[in-house]
Amino acid sequence: MSVSDALISVKNLTVRFKTDEGLITAVDDVSFDIAPGEVLGLVGESGSGKSVTAKALMQLNAGNTVYGEESRITLNLDDGPIDILSLRTAKQLNVVRGGAISMIFQEPMASFAPAITIGDQMVEQLLLHSSMDKKQAREFSIEMLDRVGISDAGRRIDQYAFEFSGGMRQRAMIAMALSTKPKLLIADEPTTALDVTIQAQVIELMKDLVDEFGMAILFITHDLGVIAQTADRVAVMYLGRVMETGPVRDVIRTPAHPYTQGLLNALPKLEKLDVALTPVPGDIPSPLERPPGCVFHTRCAKAKPGLCDVEVPVRIPVKDGHEAACLLLETEMEAAS
């Protein structure tokens, strides 16, 4: 995909945090594109840098953040590209934050202000990001709440977040995020705090809304099942690096990277009750002690000493649009050709 086709294009994103213990690398040379209307799943365990990557798209990371010099995030809007990392003032950032890009979070109770009604919060952002007046904004908000399946929206809009159940709060969050008609929705673990039955409802709702509004989604989750049910393409992250990326079918059915394979093997599957669970050996290293070479080599069963702990792998194509960053794969392919 050329840069101009992409809605958002992330190139060589590196994010470090200044701390008392030194510079911590959270995201290391990450590149990906999202096309308009596409759902990209970002999978990884805690500490893999998926949330930091997402927040970089709106410059939401904390004040001690240092972006790498090579890092570029380009948002292609109708009236020209925006270089997001170069935006400085709040006014410039408002075009992106809540305007072209909206975000929903894992814990909707923490995302709503507890002492302001849901309606007032929805109206406020519409006044900021659209040309509606107060009355129109309120009517539109009721419409949106109704659209995401909140019954009796006209009464519910004047309630507070604590009066909503977990599933309803997440629906309201989605309604709020979509009411400004963003081009890109970032969903950070939106179903993780929900029960499975409610999760299924929310996933269904999000799929309907993608069809209806045509926005692109960056869907962040640790759950490969949720990715399989929602995403078009997927990127698997580990310790700040993208290990593998490609169409969701290819990555889940024929994973090329040992880490993706390990994740899939560790997952308890209902169809295969006789197969014992195989954990990925070892623990995730501390971000202060990033392993040299391939960041996964300390836990990789196939790692070759002298190679994997020295060289940093680059992403190489496995198949159309399917890439993996593994040195062993590289040697294998060289041997085959």
């Binding site: 499975v196 039955t197 299924a200 409802q201 799929k207 099942g225 949720v226 049910q229 889940i252 997952l267």
Partner: peptide
């Protein structure tokens, strides 16, 4: 319903979940 709500790892199972 609980069993059917578990997101399947097969991308071709989309929309098959029995919704509660």
């Amino acid at each position: 319903a609980l069993l059917s709500a578990i997101p399947s790892l097969d991308p071709d199972d989309r929309g098959k979940a029995q919704k509660l």
